Simulated scan of single mutants.
Amino acid sequence: MKDGHTVDGYESLFAKAIGTFWGYTGCELVSMDDRMVVAALDVKAHHLNMFGIVHGGVYATLLDSAMGLAAMAARPEDMVVTSGLSVHFLTPVKRGRITAVAEIMLISGRTIMTKGTLTDEVGEACAAATATFRVLTGSTG
């Protein structure tokens, strides 16, 4: 979500996200469809660790959130939760905007596998990730 606007077709999903960790961290939705999500974050001082670079938890949060949204978009009537997350930290970021691109790799029964990449504002890869999501039975309601 950017400036209070949502991507067409996913308004109810983002209405739920406003007051959650997603909104608290400053994550923004750039684009979304049923196979791919692009999310971004403008790096602020509170995103940095004691060495003045973006904290690894921020990398993991943005990637997990983007990949989770991709999994939710693939199964909009179900609740999906992260069951595994692997992040590889490639390069540090000190400022600017970081962008995560998440894509569906596999949907099989109650398992969804995704991959994600995180880049800095000049397009350099900062991190790569994979995640597995468990589809829980029942509605997200």
Rank of each mutant, 00 (worst) to 15 (best):
A102I: 01
A70P: 09
E28M: 13
F51L: 04
V30M: 01
M50D: 12
G4P: 02
A128L: 08
G116I: 09
K16T: 14
D120S: 08
R110D: 08
V7E: 06
A17Q: 12
T82G: 12
G68S: 14
N49K: 11
R95K: 15
F89V: 02
A100S: 15
H46W: 03
T99L: 03
A45C: 06
D64P: 03
D8Q: 04
G123L: 07
T111A: 14
D42S: 01
T61E: 05
R134G: 03
L62Y: 03
V30Y: 00
V122Y: 08
V80G: 07
K2I: 08
L69Q: 06
A100L: 13
S139T: 08
Y24H: 14
L106M: 13
K115T: 15
T114F: 06
A102S: 09
V38R: 12
I53N: 09
S83Q: 15
T130L: 06
T140C: 07
V37Y: 05
M105W: 00
V54E: 01
I107Y: 01
M67I: 04
G56S: 03
D64Q: 05
V81M: 11
K16G: 11
A128F: 04
W22H: 00
G52Y: 08
T25M: 12
I104A: 03
I53W: 03
A17I: 05
V122G: 10
M67A: 07
R95Y: 12
M67S: 09
M1I: 06
R35S: 00
A128R: 05
S12E: 10
E103H: 02
A70I: 08
T20F: 03
M32L: 13
F51D: 02
M105I: 13
G57W: 02
V122M: 09
A66E: 04
M50A: 13
M50P: 04
A102R: 03
G109D: 05
T111I: 15
T114Q: 08
L69P: 00
D120A: 01
G116N: 11
V87M: 02
G123H: 04
L62F: 05
D78T: 09
R35Y: 00
H47K: 02
R95Q: 15
K2A: 14
K2E: 12
G123W: 03
S31L: 08
E121M: 11
G4M: 03
A71I: 12
M67Q: 11
H88Y: 06
R134P: 04
T111N: 14
Y24N: 07
T119I: 12
E28S: 14
D33T: 10
L90H: 05
M67C: 09
S86F: 00
A129S: 13
E121K: 11
A129N: 07
V135I: 15
D3T: 01
G123N: 06
Y24F: 11
M79Q: 00
V80E: 02
H47I: 02
D8A: 06
H5A: 04
E103D: 01
L48V: 05
H88C: 06
R134F: 13
S31Q: 07
G68C: 12
L63Q: 06
A125N: 13
E124Y: 00
R75H: 12
